[in-house]
Design a protein around this nucleic acid. Structure first.
Ligand SMILES: [Zn+2]
Ligand SMILES: [Zn+2]
Ligand SMILES: [Zn+2]
Ligand SMILES: [Zn+2]
Lengths: 130, 130
DNA sequence: GCCATTTTTGACAACCATTTTCGTTTTCGT
DNA sequence: ACGAAAACGAAAATGGTTGTCAAAAATGGC
């Protein structure tokens, strides 16, 4: 694990929510790092290949990454305002997806599931800003 | 509804699976249409804004579209090989997502759910090609 | 039908996230 | 310390998508 990659991983861990490559690049540069954008992309590629970080796509197609507590299969409840995420685990949706696939004769079934909303903190802030 | 937009909608309906803007542009041109790529993008934008077609993002961030039978909320079981899709409806995953959001104090909860696999036809073809 | 206004279209350029290239720097094994 | 291998970063290239703008087509009185 190179120093640069470790720096990217740390920046992502500090963020606790989903961040884009460009976000992380800005974060790192603003705290004085001389890292290049290419290296941020390469680090994120490597981290996601090895399963250390999760990736998902925003509505406009940008890739965003998160350093999750667990590396085992899970989903996310993501705040639309601050992009903080809660990790979700449970058999319900796993079983549901498997059944759906089997019912229609599909093999090698996988699924992508994300839940979005406004977190309690952001909901409160929205109400207070009258 | 302009003729061009209708042509795009028809091309998408004929496809029955998820197709990208560039796919549809190629389809239309190959059948003799003189449509421009910009117009295909505009038509898809309008169709998705009005809820007539569904959009999702591939792993590499490309937007793909589908003309679904229903305009009400549903999900898809998509073949990874031929991109044919089956429309999925049912309360299980809807209730699950709502509960997950509520449990964590999130408001305005929505979700994205897609199931992927290899359809029966494509599975069979894969086995036959020894 | 005919002209003026509005809408739609498409070639081209601009955008922007991401990838590739390639010469330089750092790391690692000996 | 020394040479090979890996990592780095600036700049250029890529590719999907959007913006621009002038031409073409549809619309609506008359
Ligand atoms: Zn996660
Ligand atoms: Zn799952
Ligand atoms: Zn198939
Ligand atoms: Zn649903």
């Amino acid at each position: 694990m190179s120093t640069r990659r470790e720096a990217v991983r740390q920046a992502l861990t500090d963020a606790s929510g989903f961040r884009s490559a460009q976000d992380l690049y800005a974060d790192l540069r603003s705290e004085g790092s001389k890292i290049g954008l290419t290296t941020v992309y390469r680090a994120l590629q490597a981290l996601s290949d090895s399963g250390e970080v999760d990736v998902l796509r925003t509505d406009d197609g940008e890739a965003v990454y998160r350093a999750c507590d667990t590396e085992s299969h899970h989903h996310h409840l993501v705040c639309r305002t601050c992009s903080t995420a809660v990790e979700i685990k449970g058999p319900t949706v796993e079983e549901w997806a498997t059944e759906i696939g089997a019912e229609h004769g599909f093999t090698g079934v996988t699924h992508t599931v994300e839940v979005f909303g406004t977190c309690a903190d952001c909901s409160l802030r929205a109400v207070q800003q009258t």
